[in-house]
Amino acid sequence: MTPTLIQTFTLTPSQGAILLLCLLTPPLLLLAFRWKRKLSSGQREISPDWSIPTIDAQAQGSSLFHTWTPAVKIGSLLIVSFLIVALHALFWSAVGLAFALLTVHLARIPWQRPLRRLAAMSGLCVLFLLILPLTSPLRSGDTLLVVPLLEGMPLRLTGVILSLTITCKAATVALLMEPMFATAELARTLQGFATLGLPSSLTQMILLCHRYLFVFQQEAARMQRAMRVRGFVPGTNLATLRTTGNALGMLFIRSFERTERVYEAMLSRGYRGAFPATSREKIAAGDLAKAAVSIMIGLLLLVLDRLAPTPRF
């Protein structure tokens, strides 16, 4: 690798601003969400309370996706997700993101939930967006981008493109999660998984675990409240770690002791190793048509990604 083969390209201020905006959108989204959470909680929280959102709050809506039989919907959107993840070029990943936005719009889901997903996903993407442009190794033929005012930190073009591509793909699949899982009750969704071949014992475990999440979250919140009332202020010290360790131990003991009661209650309500299925889902021609359209879009993106000559990105 000889440094002479590396080109340096100085951006105009407006180009630089656009590039930085692209790179900084996910971190800004993340910060905005943190800030909003802090405002809505009113007071300065001693420990952040992570409430668990319900996945199927929008299950009663009506849209293309609500009427789509869960098994076919999950199957085809999973295939699409994998096709999206296999993309290489930034341009086609961005096109995929546009399709995902359209999908969420068609599913008629309030934008709050997908935005929350994007903010959560940003956590890892921020790492890529901030680190990759600075650390990806220079190869011959690479271009260094010099942004005005940041002359000391030239950005690697490969790293910039790679990190933006990853962010687009991650955002696409994150957005697809909403139409995939939020447009039917969780029980129906899981039944769809069982139809696709997942063992029904596993889908039942997921359903039960989901149910008890909320129970134990209440339990943990109550314990936290009790600790706070007794003067516990978390800090970076050993006492905090010891107290938390003991509290976790208590939470686990309560959950283990609860399992027996839960299981007996299930047995007494007629549980014989399987939850009664509500009804068999019929697969109509419309379901298969939707599946065909969505998979075709995914395949088309992948084919264009591999075959169409796009200028470097």
């Binding site: 420990s47 952040p48 992570w50 668990i52 063992p199 014992s201 596993l202 039942q204 475990m205 997921i206 039960l208 675990c209 989901h210 149910r211 008890y212 999440l213 129970v215 134990f216 979250q217 339990e219 943990a220 936290q224 978390p234 800090g235 970076t236 905090t240 770690l241 938390t244 976790l248 939470l251 686990f252 309560r254 959950s255 283990f256 609860r258 399992t259 027996e260 839960v262 299981y263 299930m266 549980y271 190793g273």
Partner: peptide
């Protein structure tokens, strides 16, 4: 799934939710 007793599966599910909740607790 094959090796465990089928009566244990619902219990593992219940315990799993307590691990899930524990992993949400943030320490400063």
């Amino acid at each position: 799934l094959r090796r465990l007793d089928s009566a244990d599966l619902p219990k593992i599910a219940v315990v799993t939710s307590s691990f899930f909740v524990a992993s949400l607790i943030h320490l400063p």
